[in-house]
């Protein structure tokens, strides 16, 4: 697998990361290196093995339907770059 410059640009756009044109070549090389390394996993034979369901499968733990959290808007908003009253304020995003 190999990523071209257009694909890199698209991934960056989806992740809202700004990438300058001169960075594309080096980024492509880095990402291709990572992908190539992970692609080694394809050499493992997984015929007949269900994803995520091994012999000793653990299941999701569940919580009771009780209100045990929330009620601390100041803590939630503590790191907000901008706020208005108890709202987060962000640059206008409207369709």
């Amino acid at each position: 697998m190999s990523l071209d410059a257009a694909t890199i640009r698209r991934i960056a756009t989806l992740a809202r990361i700004r990438v300058e044109d001169h960075e594309l070549t080096s980024l492509a090389a880095e990402l291709n290196g990572i992908l190539g390394w992970i692609e080694q996993l394809n050499e493992v034979n997984v015929d007949g093995i269900e994803p995520l369901t091994g012999a000793q499968q653990m299941a999701l733990k569940m919580r009771e339907d009780d209100v045990t959290d929330g009620g601390y808007p100041e803590k939630v908003l503590a790191n907000a770059p901008d706020r208005a009253g108890s709202f987060y304020a962000v640059p206008k995003v409207v369709e």
Binding site: V76, D82, A84, S86, F87, Y88, A89, V90, P91, K92, V93, V94
Partner: peptide
């Protein structure tokens, strides 16, 4: 998201 409370900002309630 509330878009009508401020001319240049959107307000977010989670």
């Amino acid at each position: 998201s509330l878009h009508d409370r401020h001319p240049t900002k959107s307000y977010i309630d989670l």
